[in-house]
């Protein structure tokens, strides 16, 4: 599936919920399916700065596509990174770099983009795209 298809799938899934509680519950559940980062990569180097909770992300290139794994010490944050990884994992660096992110708003998570969240979601997106840029340069 393309990034856009996955995003649309997520929009569909989230559109079924009536209120914030169900949305958050689903997000928390998505966190439980997160491809977990190998313990050896849970280093300070792999922590995304600018989150109130800790988020570790690891990226690996397989067949010209990037595979992400991650973890967080907070459950909601874990759900958020799981959503991002579902969108970005197994995609080419180029597609990740060019991906539009307005689906975040459409699934009702806009408030996580606010700077008072210590830029949690913004930093995560930035970091994932940084990995893609790094791998893209390697490919050339």
């Amino acid at each position: 599936m393309t990034i856009e298809e996955i995003q649309n799938e997520l929009i569909d899934e989230f559109s079924m919920f009536e209120d914030w509680e169900e949305r958050y519950q689903y997000m928390i559940d998505l966190g439980k399916d997160l491809p977990l980062i190998d313990e050896q990569y849970k280093t300070d180097n792999n922590i995304i700065k600018g989150c109130q909770s800790k988020v570790w992300v690891h990226a690996e290139m397989k067949n010209d596509k990037i595979e992400f794994t991650a973890d967080s010490d907070a459950i909601i944050t874990k759900g958020i990174i799981a959503i991002l990884i579902r969108v970005f994992s197994n995609q080419s660096p180029k597609d990740i770099i060019n991906a539009e992110m307005d689906f975040i708003d459409k699934i009702g998570l806009k408030e996580h983009l606010s700077p008072t969240r210590a830029n949690g979601l913004v930093s995560m997106i930035k970091q994932l795209k940084m990995y893609a840029i790094a791998y893209q340069t390697q490919l050339k």
């Binding site: 958050y24 909770s53 907070a74 459950i75 909601i76």
Partner: peptide, 13 residues
């Protein structure tokens, strides 16, 4: 066993 950030997020909602 629960991160304070998670609790604060739910309370804000």
């Amino acid at each position: 066993g629960i991160h304070p950030y998670d609790v604060g997020t739910i309370l804000d909602k």
